[in-house]
């Protein structure tokens, strides 16, 4: 607390790390999407192309949350 500049810098890094907690949900989501996709492909290998397309689409949406968290973390470190 003696050096307010260093204190704020440390808090910034802490905040950026906390912001990345959002990646937990995205990781779970991507895992669920991949699990479901692979199961579906195992049951019906003929439809693998369609399933793969939709799986990647769903994973991209789930992953977007983690990317928002990353953007927030980057903004906290570099811009705020």
């Amino acid at each position: 607390m003696n050096d307010p500049v260093a204190f704020v810098a440390g808090l910034k890094l802490l905040g950026a790390g906390l912001a990345m907690l959002g990646a937990i949900g995205a990781g779970v989501g991507v895992g669920i999407a991949a699990s479901g996709g692979v199961q579906a492909m195992g049951r019906n290998p003929d439809a693998a192309n369609i399933i793969q397309t939709n799986m990647i689409l769903g994973m991209a949406f789930a992953e977007a949350v983690a990317i928002y968290a990353l953007a927030v973390a980057l903004i906290i470190i570099f811009a705020a």
Binding site: A60, A64, Y68, L74
Partner: peptide, 13 residues
């Protein structure tokens, strides 16, 4: 927003 940050975030990370 989602288009741009998805690509940027992945590649920058």
């Amino acid at each position: 927003l989602s288009f741009s940050f998805r690509l940027f975030g992945n590649i920058f990370a």
